[in-house]
């Protein structure tokens, strides 16, 4: 049930500070969209505004439109909690719930919302999600152990399993591999390749090779100086961005001639 997201004229604020300005972009379903750019240019901020996680910070607000399948996510009658059920998120640092077992972590989205399910149903959901996150074989014998006992890469895949267990339409990932070793990174990249069959994936990454390897579309964010808002400079198919970008700044950044 992957869905398209259309963003128009999006301004994102922290209090009075305009962090990201004037983003217009269309994110394709069933594909991976990568966001690259120097630190502090607003990639995370933009990503978090897509599922209304931005506004959980005090004073944070958004102007503009984010439309998913014809519905404005920032419309007056839309509950942010429902938006987040449709658009899941994986964070930079793996954050499994420390009080829960691996099993409970996977079904946390249902448990925390008190959704009643039969034992056989949850068993099935746990297996399906863990298989979906390529983690089943590694943890199937210790589902009742705490999730925090896994390695960093396994924890991150557990978080992915937890995110896909609620069956979202879109999956946002904020530098999901930056805390991981190269082997775990590869495992997660492979996984993204499989997940894009079912989900729309948006990934922020610092690693340009990663963007080149996994994504179909790439967006380059940049900012003119400290205190200036970040902007989406260029948004194009990944091949074009990496071979023949429209903008000089993109080319400079990609070839390492930056700043």
């Amino acid at each position: 049930m992957a869905k398209r997201i259309e963003v128009s004229d999006l301004n994102i604020y922290y209090g009075n500070f305009l962090a990201v300005e004037g983003v217009n972009v269309s994110i394709e379903p069933r594909s991976i969209t990568a966001l690259i750019g120097p630190s502090g240019c607003g990639k995370s901020t933009f990503l978090r505004s897509l599922n209304r996680m931005h506004e959980v910070l005090p004073g944070a607000r958004v102007e503009g439109k984010v439309v998913m399948d014809g519905q404005d996510l920032y419309g007056g009658d839309v509950d942010p909690v429902d938006v987040r059920r449709q658009i899941g998120m994986v964070f930079q640092r793996p954050n499994p719930f420390p009080t829960m077992s691996i099993y409970d972590n996977v079904i946390a989205g249902n448990r925390l919302n008190n959704k009643r399910m039969r034992k056989s149903e949850t068993d099935e959901l746990v297996e399906k999600s863990l298989r979906g996150a390529n983690l089943w074989n590694e943890v199937k014998d210790r589902l009742d152990r705490p999730g925090s006992g896994l390695s960093g890469g396994q924890q991150q895949r557990l978080c992915i399993a937890r995110a896909i267990a609620v069956e979202p339409d879109v999956l946002l990932m904020d530098e999901p591999c930056s805390a991981l070793d190269p082997i775990s990174t590869l495992a997660i990249e492979d996984l993204m390749g499989e997940l894009k069959e079912r989900f729309t994936i948006v990934i922020v990454t610092h690693n340009m090779q990663q963007a080149a390897r996994v994504s179909e579309q790439t967006g380059f964010f940049n900012l003119n100086g400290v205190g200036q808002p970040g902007r989406l400079i260029e948004f194009n198919p990944t091949e074009k961005i990496f071979s023949n970008p429209d903008q000089k700044a993109t080319e400079d950044y990609i070839s390492g001639r930056f700043g």
Partner: peptide, 22 residues
């Protein structure tokens, strides 16, 4: 850690449930 609250919000869990259950 705030990360746990955010993990819960990102699963579509309302704030009060996040406080009570996480």
């Amino acid at each position: 850690p705030n990360e746990l609250r955010e993990a819960s919000y990102a699963l579509g869990v309302p704030k009060w449930r996040t406080v009570v259950k996480v």
